[in-house]
Structure formats: structure tokens, C-alpha cells
Write a protein that binds this DNA or RNA. Structure first.
Lengths: 396, 396
DNA sequence: TCTCTTTGTCCTGTGACTGGAGAAAGTCAT
DNA sequence: ATGACTTTCTCCAGTCACAGGACAAAGAGA
């Protein structure tokens, strides 16, 4: 099957495509209510979209008291691929043009194996989704990687936790392999876009999206658009100092947030706690596995282990300290917390909230919700689909 | 004289007005090179602007190898008022339509005397400028106040250092008194706009502008536009925590930046140092005046006093610590340092630079200039003029 | 003085768009 | 059912904005 080749010819068409993406199938009349074009003009543009095949007729709409309007919708065969490459696992999902997830696969994988190995696996996962009948091909793909990206070119730059990825032409390469347009961004930015499109941030123009996983990052949305900074490294808050002259961090500095709260730090703290004879639960796990990881702490906390909960609270406090600073600086309308922390979410959230509400000024926190992301692992892949659809649904 | 009543009728005219504001008098042909309109269309729009009186003919341009073009410029009688209300003094300036400062007055004044008293003085200063023949009237005014502002309404909200200003309808009131359009913003944002228009930030789209005076604030410019946050309190970095469980701050928290580095903190530290017998220079000044202020420290430092320099370096380190965090988060293309610190600028700047370059990641600092503002006290008033001209030179 | 370049003006053709007329398709009350 | 009223859709003509060419004006340079 030939995939989507057409692109909107002008801003009106792009606008209509986005309305159909975000609002689902819609009648011509309803579209007319939203776009401020004359009926004739609207009809012309819709007809042109129908000609391109991007949009198809979809029966009759419910009557609004007179003649029933014809529905139109985005072509049901359109498929986007959302890829979220994390430090230790990969998520791949297919969506339709309305960015609804039709199929989603997660597999463990270490980014440090390098781009070639990782993308071999990603392409295999994509092929699997295709084979299961969810897609005949892909019209575009959005890819998130756990590090800074030079956005226009879609190339990772100096990613600390991804040795071997520096300068790898992700966008170019995957576009070749997949035979469709590709956009690449930081994984945190994708999460932010996901929550903005289909999650808690739907109606907020300026917000922060803090992702706590192997590392800690922050997506920044200004006026509905992701802000990436001049070199694409905006939101890199894991190495903000929380303790002058504090713990040494892998980055070479002292007292970084990630030195106190990250997968590695949490594991080390847990082992130390066992060494001090503090937690039977964690000791058992240590004995069983030989070492501890963040997952163990998370599980112990879920089981009610006081030491594990203390560790998470302490990390939440540190994170809250940083977020409090960012809230004072950025004055967002919402803070979303997400990442691989869904299990320990509420303990963590409580600690962060306490810290932010105590430290930031009332004017900034007065009406500031701090909430957990509602999409979990799908935020990233939906964000990926959103990224590429924003690109494709803009004038050529 | 009737003041400017006309406004640009469309985006093209607005564009032309801004080009003339930023580029000075210009020939029609040169304008044509910049706006991508057909000659006929350009001629029509220019003629319409001439009709409104916003723009006037200004002789012949130099030849570019053929027929000489006619110059046009913004009406030379247009006058904007820039007002920068600081914690302890007020700056008022008149500019022409190109935002060149024609006259500038500074007077000491305590904002705590309240809006009525302050604006009485501001209006007197404006009248003085008018009386000196620099203006026959004002076509618009931009006003900066040292606290958060609800921008669309031009009303200060819960300003910590301006008791009595909360909710005072500055924009409305001054607009009445002056008989011209008025816009109100945070003083730090005005400084940022000033440096962007006529200072070091001319060619940068995303930058931070840190103002160190009585308090510490930060102007945020994203994509050439000032970012104000959802409640107008963005950039309020004075109360970011730099030391967990540190010094108590006037805001009720502990370890805030302003608890370590602000006018009051600096004075207290200096007196403490004298108490410890550390500085002859400062001791002399303390004896002479009965107490010390930031100005004394500044002067002592300028005279080479080691203790004073140490105090400034310490403050610079704290500030640098905060800025380092902001740089990681925001990844700006430039950081401008300004405010009432011009005297001790280079010592301070060195301390800040050291701290930022050490603490932030290389990707964010790689090509990041950290510089002193080049406009000094005129940054605020130029920013004020810029603010109102942006408003007036936009489609009605 | 002659040629070439640049600038400004005029004019016409084209394409985008609006808004009305009227047909098509429904709803609702009688 | 039937007729009056609504809503939707299509068609069409009139208007407006704009581009771009032709040409005149004004100057540079040889």
C-alpha cells in the first residue's frame, strides 16, 4: 500500500487536520463553527483534503435540527509509530491518525548497547506490530531518546547515559529504514506532549513535566509549545545542585539531585540501610539477589516497609526542593510528575508537594496543581505520535 | 497638539512601523528588501501610513547605483515615556519613536510610600521633562514596578516589597493622568526588553536577564518574547533556596538567595565583619555613618578592600549557584547581569561565571556568554518605551 | 550625451474569498 | 401526512487583495 504522501497545502488545511486529530470525526458544519471561514471556502478546502486522501467521508452526522451534515474524519488507514527509548527499556506503539494507541509493546533493553543494536530491536518491534495486522505501513514516526537532541536534525548530542549515540543520525537512519518521515526528541519532551494531548495537561498552556526514571528530566511547555533551549538541552535538571559540597555525582560535580535521587543512588542508599540493619524487607531482597535496585526499593515501599518509604520521601524532598526553585522561576500552571515511578507515586507526590508548597511563594503556588501523569508508559509513545503528526499536519 | 491616535491597520503596517523603530529612517526600497511584499503593495501601505501621520517623508536616500529612493521615518514628534520604579529610586525618561533617550531623570524615592505618592512624583518628573522642551505630550508610557504584575490589566499583585500597591490600578490611573495608552510590567522584564532592544541581547532569542538590586529577579525571554508565567510572577528567583535549613529569610523560609545576597544581607554581613575586626575600611565607614549599607560595601570593594571583595564574591557564588541551576533548566543563549551593581560588576561577574561554568553541564554552557548589561540605568526606561511601542505598533 | 541601473507609479489579470440565492434534506407541530 | 421552519450544502457572481509587467523618472558612469 502506498502510504501518506500528501501534506496540507495551506494553513487552513493544517488547521482542519489538527481539529480532526484532536476532536475525532466531525461534521463539516461543526468544523465550520470552529474555523471562521466562509462555508464556500471551507467546502473547497475539505474537498481538496478528500482528494488527497488524508481525510475521508464518514457517513452522516446527527441532526442539529435541520438537514443532517456529512461527517468527515482522518483516513482510518493512517498509522503513526511512537517510540520511547528509555535507559533500560523500549516502548513502541502504533496509533491511528487520532493518536489512539492501537497496539503497544514494551521490551527491556539497555541503551548502552548503542544505536545500531537498539534500532534493530525497535524495527523488529515495529515489524511485529505490523505483522499483527494493526498497520500496513507507517505514515510517520516520533522517537524519544533519553538525552539531549539537536532537534532540527534529529541527532543526539553528547548524551551522558548513551555512550555511542553522540552524533548518530537517528532521524535520517530511521526514516530510511521505515520509509516514512521521522522526528526525534528528548524522551521527557515526548512525555510532556503526550500528557498535553491526552493526559492531565490538556487545557494548560504553560506547564512542567518532571520525569523521574533512571535520571531526572523536565519537559517545559510554553504557550502550548515544547521549549527546547538553544542547544536542545533545556530541562536537564538532574544535575542541579541541591546540597553545596554534597555527595559526589557521576558528572564530576558535588551535590547534584541525581546523586541523591536516581536509580543508582536509591540502590546504594538501600544497601547502606541494610548494612545498618534498618530493614528486614530489604535485607531479604538483598540476600536473594546479591544486590539491590530501585525496583526493590519500590516494591518494599509498596509492601509498607518503613525504611524504603523513608528513602522515597527523602528523594521526594530533594526533588521537591528543585521543583520549588523551578516553580518560582517559571511560574507554571501545572506540574506533572511521571516516569517509572508509578508504584511509589503517592508517597513521592506527597513529599514533593510538601516541599514545593512550603518553599515557593504563595503567588506562584496559589493555584498550582502538582499531579501524577495519567498516561504512565503510554505518555511517551503518544507524545511521539503527536510530535510527528504536528510535523505532518503543518503546511509544506 | 493632538497626540498619536492612529494605529496600524494591519500586520504589514505594524511590521513596517517596527522596522522603522528598530532600524531608524529607511528608504522605501530598503524596506521592500525586508518585507517580501510587491512594490505596489508596499507603496500602498507606506502611503496609508503617511496619511495617518505616524510616518513622515524624510528626504532622499543615498543612491544604490540608480535613481535615489525617498526616505521615510517615524514621525519625529512622537514621544514615549519610560518609567522604572525601583525600590529606592525612580527613573523617568522620554524617548522618540526610535526609542532613543532624549532626556532622563533619576530621583530617590521609597516605593513604600505607596502608589499615590510615587505617581505624584513620577508625573511631576514627566512634567519636568515636558517643560524642558523635550516633548509636547506623550503618545504612550511603559512603566516598570519592582514586583509581580497581572500583565493584561497592568495591576501589581501581592508585591512583597511594595505594601499598599496590591491591586492598585496602575495602568488605568496613569493612563487617565497622562492621557495616553500605558502598559505596566515587572521592572526586571523591562530591563530584559531594554537590553534586547538596544543592549547586549540584540541578536539573541532566548536569554535570561538577572537583576541584582534591592532584591534579585530574573527576566525570561523565550523566542524574543518576554515570558511572564501564568500569574505574572515568573522570574522571581530571590527566594530560591540555596542552603537547605540555612539563614532565615524575611519571607519566612530558610536559606533563600536573598537571605544571603541582597542589600540588607550585605549590610548585615559587613557590620558583622567589622565586629570581627576584619576591615579597617568598613570600620571607618561604620563609624562615620552609624550603620552600613550595600553602597558602603560597594565603595569599599571599589577601593580594593579585601573583606568587601570577599563579601561580594560570596554573594556572587550564591547567585551563580542559582543561575547554574537555571542555565541547566532553561539552556539560554545568553545570561545578562544587571541592576544597581555596576560598581562591583566585574568581581561579581567573575564569581558568577566561575560558579556557573563549574556547575552546569558543558552542553548548556559550551557557548554561553555571561555578561554585564550594557545599558545600566537606562535599560529599564528603554524597556518601558519598547513595551508600549510594541503595544502601539501592533494591529488594532 | 548615451547607456545602464534603480526606483516609483500605473494598470491589468488572476486568484482567493465572501455572501446571497436556492436546492436538498431534515425536524416538528398540527 | 402535510406544511412551515431549520440546517446544510452547492453554485455563482461580485469584490478585494495582490503580483507582476510596462513604463516613466531619476540618477550613475563611461
Amino acid at each position: 500500500m502506498r502510504r501518506m504522501t500528501a501534506r496540507p497545502a495551506n494553513a487552513h488545511q493544517a488547521r482542519l487536520l489538527r481539529l480532526l486529530r484532536d476532536g475525532g470525526p466531525n461534521s463539516r458544519a461543526q468544523l465550520g463553527d470552529q474555523v471562521d471561514l466562509s462555508r464556500s471556502k471551507l467546502a473547497v478546502e475539505v474537498d481538496r483534503l478528500l482528494e488527497t486522501g488524508l481525510v475521508v467521508a464518514d457517513g452522516l452526522a446527527a441532526s442539529r435540527g435541520g438537514r443532517r451534515s456529512h461527517n468527515i474524519r482522518l483516513a482510518p488507514a493512517l498509522r503513526f509509530l511512537g517510540v520511547d527509548i528509555g535507559a533500560t527499556s523500549v516502548d513502541v506503539a502504533v496509533t491511528n491518525a487520532e493518536l489512539e494507541v492501537l497496539g503497544h509493546i514494551n521490551q527491556p533493553m539497555d541503551v548502552r548497547e548503542g544505536p545500531v543494536a537498539v534500532f534493530e530491536q525497535v524495527l523488529a518491534m515495529a515489524a511485529k506490530l505490523k505483522a499483527s495486522g494493526l498497520a500496513e505501513g507507517f505514515d510517520g514516526a516520533g522517537i524519544g531518546v533519553p538525552g539531549p537532541v539537536r532537534f532540527p536534525e534529529g541527532v543526539p548530542v553528547a548524551p551522558p547515559i548513551m555512550p555511542g549515540w553522540d552524533g548518530f543520525p537517528v532521524r535520517e537512519a530511521i526514516s530510511q529504514d521505515l520509509g516514512c518521515p521521522v522526528m526525534v526528541d528528548n524522551d521527557v519532551n515526548l512525555m510532556a506532549m503526550g500528557e498535553q494531548h491526552a493526559g492531565v495537561a490538556r487545557s494548560v498552556g504553560d506547564f512542567l513535566c518532571v520525569k523521574i526514571g533512571t535520571g531526572i528530566g523536565c519537559g517545559i511547555v510554553v504557550g502550548g509549545e515544547v521549549y527546547r533551549g538553544v542547544t536542545g538541552s533545556a530541562g536537564d535538571i538532574g544535575h542541579i545542585q541541591v546540597e553545596p559540597d554534597g555527595r559526589p555525582c557521576a558528572c564530576g560535580n558535588k551535590g547534584c539531585l541525581e546523586a541523591y535521587f536516581s536509580g543508582a543512588a536509591l540502590a546504594r542508599d538501600a544497601e547502606d540501610a541494610v548494612g545498618q540493619g534498618l530493614s528486614q524487607e530489604l535485607a531479604t531482597r538483598l540476600e536473594a539477589a546479591g544486590k539491590l535496585s530501585a525496583v526493590d526499593v519500590s516494591a518494599a515501599a509498596a509492601a509498607g516497609d518503613a525504611t524504603a518509604l523513608d528513602l522515597i520521601r527523602a528523594g521526594g524532598n530533594r526533588t521537591g526542593q528543585v521543583i520549588a526553585g523551578l516553580v518560582s522561576f517559571f511560574n507554571p500552571g501545572l506540574v506533572v510528575i511521571g516516569g517509572g515511578v508509578t508504584g511509589l507515586g503517592h508517597t513521592l507526590l506527597a513529599a514533593i508537594r510538601t516541599q514545593v508548597y512550603r518553599q515557593s511563594l504563595p503567588l506562584a503556588t496559589g493555584n498550582l496543581p502538582i499531579v501524577l501523569g495519567e498516561l504512565g508508559p503510554t505518555a511517551g509513545v503518544i507524545g511521539g505520535a503527536r510530535l510527528i503528526s504536528d510535523h505532518l499536519f503543518s503546511p509544506a
